[in-house]
Design a protein around this nucleic acid. Structure first.
Lengths: 225, 225
DNA sequence: ACCTTAAGTGGACGCTGTCTACAATTGTTC
DNA sequence: GAACAATTGTAGACAGCGTCCACTTAAGGT
């Protein structure tokens, strides 16, 4: 009937055990299904692996159905990318949450900055496909897009700003040095992540990458002021 | 005759003004021609833009001819990537050459490190497609591949090591801090480049990116030791 | 002069993204 | 409740891509 039938047209038209066919003509939640499928593909194979037709296949829908929800595959990829950014933000938040509140504001500030950097790095290592996808297409950084955020409503960039604000408020960072500090701090950790993931450092063992990350955070702390 | 004829089959079979057809059956230098075509595509559109069939088209050759010189398109892309790395190395060398020899070894060392970082960044800004291509596929860093090098025979990583050695020899860097310092220094500048090129900072004007680069180099200098 | 072999061509296949036209369902309005 | 419009799916086609297999052309060595 559908071209999908080739998957299980063993002369029986009843639903096979593993693959049940949608009963209604409408899918009901196709957009989300496509993003979920795309996310899984991105997780496994990075941005280049999110292919529109495969997503529709996994959603058990004809290829063109996707075009009712996305202008083109770039739009689908962008939705997936946004989801990846959200997960990155969530990972950072979790890492920040693990550092208790600590009474000394300077210690707290340092821990916050460290958590942002290491959470970033850990996510990159644990989910390289998602990480690479998150930064595959250039989104604007200044326009806060809530779709990129995690539970706190902050995207990774804003989480970093938060940590740096704590640094300044606790007196670890002068107002002058605070300016654009997120760009500097971000660059360091992001660079390490990319070099370790897809760059020339991809043979480094994970522990070493994380150890380098620790050194980087210290370097940022000392180098910023 | 060839399928290429569709490009200029205006009922005249003589060579058109702009496109002359190869006379001999053999191309003579097809491998290089394909790499050159791929490089140009990479320059304009980044790694995803280097498509095998288009390269053969530009070399005025049938698509399959490429397979006499490359196992597949990944192999072609890898050759292009290697060339991009060489150009990056050349750009860094040039930047290093601009800093005179300077008698004070500490000043010289600092200038060297700065040149590596800023040369790296300037190349990324001037040739974003090549830069992105250079790091699109993970090559090993430790195996020195002369194909990646420029005139001095050093790849970008080795040029950075050279600058850091000068830092150590002039007493600016302790032996302990010297260890793995290239990873830390590299990460910072590489991260800025990628964020500025394809990441969330791609709207930043070039001057600002370069200014951030200067600050990064200073940060590395102070943060390493 | 023959034979081997390197380096080209031709045609096919399955995959992709995307277009246009059509069908089925749902929601709306009289 | 029937007619109609809008939404959301399908069918079929197209060009472009990487790649496979079979064939051809020329060059070089004996």
């Amino acid at each position: 009937m559908f071209s999908l039938a080739i998957h299980f047209d063993e002369t029986d038209m009843k639903k096979s055990a593993s693959v049940q066919r949608r009963k209604t003509f409408r899918h009901g939640d196709l957009r989300n299904a496509l993003v979920a499928a795309g996310l899984e593909m991105a997780r496994v194979g990075g941005p280049d692996a999110v292919v529109l037709r495969e997503a529709t296949r996994r959603a058990m829908v004809s290829p063109n159905a996707a075009y009712r929800h996305f202008a083109n595959q770039a739009a689908l990829l962008d939705a997936v990318r946004s989801e990846c950014l959200s997960r990155l933000a969530a990972a950072i938040e979790e890492e920040m949450g693990k550092t208790g509140l600590g009474r000394d504001p300077q210690v707290f500030a340092r821990k916050s900055l460290r958590a942002v950097g290491m959470g970033y790095l850990r996510f990159a290592i644990k989910e390289p496909g998602m990480f690479r996808t998150a930064f595959s297409v250039p989104p604007a950084v200044d326009v806060p897009n809530s779709a990129n955020a995690a539970s706190m409503g902050l995207n990774p960039f804003e989480l970093l700003s938060l940590a740096l604000n704590r640094m300044q408020q606790s007196g670890l960072l002068s107002k002058k040095d605070r300016k654009d500090a997120e760009y500097l701090a971000w660059s360091t950790v992001h660079g390490l992540a990319r070099l370790a993931l897809e760059g020339p450092l991809h043979t480094l063992p994970n522990e070493k990458v994380l150890a380098l990350g620790e050194r980087l955070v210290v370097m940022v702390e000392r180098g910023l002021s």
